[in-house]
């Protein structure tokens, strides 16, 4: 009995010693292995490419001065992975906000407002419980000028003994007054690796 307990204990110690320690990764200095699935570096690359191209093209320069108001429309995930497309759109929104050229509305969305509090706060009108001087007045919400939409596509190929996974991140910025796409971009992300790797 004692020998068995000792053997189990030794095994556990050996296994614990072999396991890779958990560590923090600094995104500013990450040369780590590449996954076949989409990781944060891919979203960062796509967002950087998109924002730099939007700024360089002048598409987000409001000729009347001031900032454009953008709404995030549908970003379709046509990949085999479960992707939260906010990983992409949030980076774009933050960068455009920092550029001083575009501000995003959270009061409108395809599936209802992103922040329902904008509407909820207006339900306080005519409530005797609230000081009405602080309640939002009618006609103060800003309608969007631009809409950001897009699609993430995945294609898998077998190349000799390897697997090639292609991702295409396609984005369009539509001017809502005319319905015209005033900016469009596509970032291809191509990965080649072991055929045993799983990309879903």
């Amino acid at each position: 009995m004692l020998i068995r307990a000792f053997a189990v204990l030794i095994s556990l110690v050996v296994l614990a010693g072999c396991s890779t320690p958990t560590r923090y990764i600094d995104p500013a200095a990450d040369d780590g292995p590449v996954a076949m699935t989409m990781d944060y570096r891919d979203f960062e690359k796509a967002a950087t490419d998109a924002v730099e191209d939007m700024l360089a093209s002048g598409a987000v320069n409001n000729p009347d001065g001031g900032r454009y108001i953008m709404v995030v429309s549908r970003i379709t995930n046509d990949t085999m992975q479960r992707i939260d497309t906010d990983q992409l759109t949030k980076k774009i929104r933050v960068a455009l906000l920092r550029s001083g050229k575009v501000v995003t509305t959270t009061a409108v969305g395809l599936n209802g407002p992103e922040d329902a509090m904008t509407e909820k706060a207006r339900e306080l009108r005519d409530s005797d419980e609230f000081d009405q001087s602080g309640v939002q007045r009618k006609g103060t919400l800003q309608a969007p000028d631009l809409s950001l939409s897009g699609k993430i596509i995945q294609r898998n190929h077998k190349v000799e003994k390897e697997q090639q996974v292609e991702y295409y991140i396609q984005l369009s910025l539509t001017e809502l007054s005319s319905g015209l796409a005033i900016w469009e971009g596509e970032t291809p992300i191509i990965k080649r690796g072991s055929d045993k790797s799983v990309s879903w």
Binding site: P27, E44, K45, A47, T48, V51, E52, K91, I92, A95
Partner: peptide, 9 residues
């Protein structure tokens, strides 16, 4: 002045 990301291309 911060941009989109901090990583190397």
């Amino acid at each position: 002045v911060r941009g989109v990301g901090e990583g190397y291309k």
